[in-house]
């Protein structure tokens, strides 16, 4: 029971964590990426659709990442080169991804509801030998799919990159004080652009983690996860482990909502509000604790 809950929590955390890691890069570069939701959605549709059409997981994933990264690059170009308001471009990204996936769903699959992609290869769960047989812990540590594991590994890699490489130093410098960065020859434009591209890649992976394991796509299936990821970015304060813990809270609230749906007859609609309410509370508590009065 408890091990099941932890297992579900980690699975629910994966898409949020991946997207949040992406959002963290743009955040560190000093930009807020509102478009995570749209990037996730675009990749969720494209990856499962292409994987279904080509019967290849890898091609599917790459196609998904391609689209989400393209959206990210467009966002970067509009906000950095054309100096469009980054919030507004982010909203445009979300709206576009939403419209595009619905439109493509209708045009290509002739269906508006849930799209089933039964020909797509299965993203199987990996059982770690020996570990899986440990009672209790086996269930917690083993039996996740490759994306779940890679989310954890990527968290560690992100940490090393951000705090122990010149790139990480430059990225943080750009975000904290762009004028200083420029004065020592660090290109703000390049770092911000790259941060957007990275956020596109990570958010894309997050989208893949939504659709591939289930082999379905539903319009708007990200359902606010991009926004929740954005909150995780804020709460994580630029540290990948912080982002991980914040994502875990939201993963747990989703798992909790799922569990109650299975165990009680409370209306599922009401239970679905849990992750949003928790996110709002977490954000408010964070704001109160950091005591930044509104200036």
């Amino acid at each position: 029971m408890i091990s099941n809950f932890i297992h579900t929590t980690l699975v629910m955390t994966t898409p949020i964590l991946l997207a949040a890691l992406g959002g963290m890069f743009t955040d560190l570069s000093g930009m807020l990426n509102i478009g995570l939701e749209g990037m996730m959605l675009a990749s969720a549709f494209t990856s499962i659709f292409v994987a279904n059409a080509t019967s290849s997981l890898l091609i599917g994933i790459l196609a998904g990442l391609c689209l989400s990264t393209t959206l990210a690059a467009i966002m970067a170009y509009f906000s950095l080169s054309l100096r469009a308001n980054v919030f507004v471009v982010g909203l445009a990204t979300n709206l576009f991804a939403n419209g595009l996936t619905v439109f493509l769903g209708v045009s290509l699959c002739k269906s508006k509801g849930t799209l089933l992609f039964l020909n797509a290869p299965k993203l199987s769960n990996i059982q770690i030998p020996f570990v899986k047989d440990i009672p209790f812990l086996g269930k917690i540590l083993s039996g996740y799919n490759a994306l779940d594991y890679s989310a954890i590994i990527l968290t560690i890699i992100c940490y090393l990159v951000i705090f122990h490489t010149p790139y990480g130093y430059h990225l943080r410098a750009v975000g904290k004080d762009p004028r200083t960065a420029i004065s020592v020859g660090i290109s703000v434009y390049k770092h911000r652009f790259l941060a957007f591209v990275l956020s596109g890649l990570f958010a894309g992976l997050g989208g893949v983690a939504l659709s591939l394991p289930l082999k379905i796509f539903v319009g708007g299936m990200t359902n606010g996860r991009g926004w929740i990821a954005l909150v995780a970015v804020v709460l994580g304060q630029g540290n990948p482990f912080g982002v991980f813990i914040a994502s875990l809270i939201f993963g747990a609230s989703s798992a909790f909502s799922n569990m109650l749906q299975a165990l009680t007859d409370i209306s599922p609609k009401l239970l679905l509000t849990i992750p949003f309410v928790i996110t709002l509370i977490a954000m408010t508590v964070y704001a109160i604790r950091s005591k930044k009065t509104y200036e």
Partner: peptide, 30 residues
């Protein structure tokens, strides 16, 4: 040296001094 200093408050003196021209060791780590 600009009139308004171009330093990153959250970085240490050493990190500020080498910013942009960091010394790296294996695997590109600082």
């Amino acid at each position: 040296v600009h009139q308004h200093f171009r330093l990153i408050d959250d970085f240490t003196v050493a990190e500020n001094v080498v910013l942009g021209v960091e010394i790296t060791r294996k695997f590109g780590f600082i």
